[in-house]
Amino acid sequence: MLKLFRRSQEEQRADEQRIHESLEKTRGGLMGRLGAIFQANEITEATWEELEETLIMGDVGIETTEALVSRVRTRVAKENVKRPDQAQVVLKQEMLAVLGGAEPMEIDEPRLLTVILIVGVNGSGKTTSIAKLARLYKQHGRKVVLAAADTFRAAAVHQLEIWGERVGVEVISQGQGADPGAVVYDAIRACQESRNADLLIIDTAGRLHTKFNLMKELEKVRNVAARQVHKAPHETFLVLDATTGQNALSQARHFKEAVAISGVILTKLDGTAKGGMVFAIAQELGLPVRFVGTGERMEDLAPFDARVFVDSLFQ
């Protein structure tokens, strides 16, 4: 399949570096112990207990942790693995298997107008992630337009407009209190008719996934896009704060049900947060992580690479 752009070698290296650096603190902290656990001379009951503890403290969640540890244990016994460093290889393989090889993203497919819908709970980092995404794709030669469909939170439109200015992309808005569906309708028309844009990113208001009416509103926004553009939205990303605990799974489940999310953007990975809940999300819902937000600068967004992510956890 023809890609609109392919990432160059250097870009790829820079991205790996970014994930790597952002996980530096994670490695130094608890998840760093993952590597240390297998430094011991032999595999004992304590090894497994320590592994379980480390994974739980990395927000992997008890169910996913137990499943993972039990799979590794079974394989270690069956394959007659004696050395801890070999057991570590098995663990890595199993962790990678959970995160899985994801299909290529729809964003990169050539079409007249690609529509991306961004959703998430309050304060997860939607608007900032959108700015970073816009910058990334603008750099790759796409004509990007942003739709300010968070018409609820005070000054959200203004916030997106400031980002739009900084990145150098146009923002379509109707101000606070406007109907989000109408904003999306307008934005798509603008992209197709006057702006000649090929990538529209829609910012929506943060909402707790348990709010029935707000989730209905999101469905409506999605339908507006679907009616105007064939197969739109082509990607719907859930923005997830890496400091979130097990509730992340509930968020992913509800948003998936309402608007069929196709992937996750993991934000604030520059903290000491480990983002371990992406294992549970991948395992239970089969949702791939697509991007990681690794810092406060505009360029701090990297495409997610499961291998780099897992490797980094062990170094």
Partner: peptide, 12 residues
């Protein structure tokens, strides 16, 4: 603090 915070809550 966000009530949805995970294991990090302690360090924060």
């Amino acid at each position: 603090a966000d009530s949805m915070t995970g294991q990090q809550a302690v360090n924060v």
